[in-house]
Nucleic acid binder design. Structure first.
Length: 420
RNA sequence: CGGAAUGUGGUGUAACGGCUAACAUCCCUGGUUUGGGACCAGGUGACUCCGGGUUCGAAUCCCGGCAUUCCGACCA
């Protein structure tokens, strides 16, 4: 894409009412636009990043047998009354709205209920199990306090996968499989090093749930990390009993602030029993379906990556989710110059080879272009100018590094087009 | 939901109760310049969040509302 055609602009200063690092950088770089407190619009660059994160997650969910669906955000009052989760006293994050005919609807904050009821239409026999179903879908939560930019918002996309198994054992086995998939996802997203599987409250469903916590100053949780085992315990459940369960000693733990980027649960049979999701086993006996749920928030992950992988100049996207692989910058004086023609030519070749490239063809000063490039955070910068051509081609520099080198245009093309 | 702070051109800031609300940036015109947010000249853009009140006079003081941020509570 040509940067001259991008309708978003970078800015030197962030609005005074945004204090979180992720919101400041994402707003300044033009990835997001603020609509209301805790409500953000994703701009062209932002939606690219968000979709890239979603795609990584989708691939790993498919890898563990997930089947993608899309449920509706509109929720049936009767259904939620069945599980006693409609009342505002039970669930205080509901957004509710009225129908013209007098009925009432909710905007979904999670989807266990509709997902379970939907599956009850299809699951009858032991032959129908197990099933793993997931979606990327908008959740609405009427947070009393939205905060930290895109890390805690009132509307957000969530990946939620639900597992439906014959037995408790099958369910617990799948929980482990999902856990491994999550570990892979965070690795691919560049957060592997500082993300910990963390023991947290299992709520009413089971003893523990598993949170994935990424070390982050802007996070809302405090976790106790065991470096040897690479696990952690959420402060909320930090007791002697838990330590005994996990076989770790208190003195081996270090405390850190972290942000919850994912959460996995064994749900038991609470929802299946309440909503009539059962199956007939080999001997003709009716049994409850065992369930688990597995959530991830792509936008919060985007926020955490911005917080964790950035420097004083701007964002540093991991290649796996960057909006573009290359930032091609022409420093030509004018659009008729030789180096500009070379830049155009290179841009076309890269585009024809389906390389994701952002071409800075604007008539800006070199300094302004470099500053913008650093702010945008595209992993590789390619500068083409009279100077670079005399030196032998183009100057390449990784965003995360201070070093640059000159390579020939042919070398660059081989590097980025060999797979095509 | 409790507490605190803040609301002034698109953005960041300034202005003792007193002249035409100032400066920077952004944007537009022209010129000039091109390896780390260049320079010169000119120009557009604000009922100072909304509604009341005090006063000869309010961006400024008072009351109410709304909004945003932060702290806390909450957070399948």
């Amino acid at each position: 894409m040509r940067q001259s055609q991008l309708f978003t602009k970078t800015r030197k200063e962030a609005p005074a009412d945004e204090t979180s690092k992720n919101a400041q950088l994402l707003l300044r770089a033009g990835y997001i636009h603020k609509e209301l407190a805790g409500v953000y619009t994703f701009l062209p660059l932002g939606i690219k990043v968000l979709n890239n994160i979603i795609q990584v997650i989708r691939e790993e969910m498919n890898e563990i047998g997930g089947q993608e669906v899309s449920l509706t955000a509109l929720q049936d009052k009767n259904l939620w009354e069945t599980t006693d989760r409609w009342d505002d006293k039970k669930v205080d994050v509901w957004f509710k709205t009225e129908l013209k005919n007098g009925g009432e609807l909710g905007l979904g904050f999670t989807h266990e209920e509709p997902m379970t009821r939907m599956m009850a239409q299809f699951v009858r026999s032991f032959r129908d199990l197990p099933q793993y179903v997931y979606q990327f879908q908008t959740k609405f939560r009427n947070e009393t306090r939205a905060k930290s930019g895109i890390m805690r918002t009132r509307e957000f996309i969530m990946k939620d996968l639900y597992s439906f198994c014959k037995t408790k054992e099958d369910q617990e086995k799948y929980y482990e499989i999902a856990k491994e998939a999550y570990i892979k996802i965070f690795k691919r997203l560049g957060l592997g090093e500082n993300t910990y599987y963390t023991f947290a409250s299992g709520g009413v469903f089971s003893k523990y749930s598993g949170e994935f916590q990424t070390l982050c100053e802007a996070g809302e949780d405090e976790i106790y990390i065991h470096d040897g085992k690479k696990i952690a315990v959420n402060k909320e459940v930090m007791t002697d009993e838990v330590l005994l369960d996990l076989g770790v000693k208190r003195e081996d733990l270090r405390v850190a602030k972290a942000s919850e980027v994912g959460n996995i649960f064994n749900l038991g049979t609470r929802f299946s029993d309440a909503l009539g999701l059962s199956y007939t086993d080999e001997s003709g006996e009716k049994k409850s379906v065992w369930m688990g749920s597995y959530g991830l928030g792509p936008a919060r992950i985007m926020g955490v990556i911005t917080e964790v992988l950035s420097d004083d100049k701007g964002i540093i996207w991991p290649e796996s989710i960057a909006p573009f692989s290359l930032h091609l910058i022409s420093l030509s004086k004018d659009k008729s110059g030789d180096s500009y023609e070379k830049a155009e030519e290179l841009y076309k070749k890269l585009k024809d080879s389906h390389v994701e490239v952002l071409f800075d063809d604007r008539e800006e000063s070199a300094g302004a272009k470099f500053a913008d490039s650093d702010l945008l955070g595209i992993p590789m910068r390619v500068v083409i100018s009279d100077k670079s051509l005399i030196a032998g081609g183009v100057e390449i520099k990784e965003r995360k590094s201070d070093k640059s080198e000159i390579i020939s245009i042919e070398q660059l093309l081989t590097m980025y087009t060999k797979n095509c």
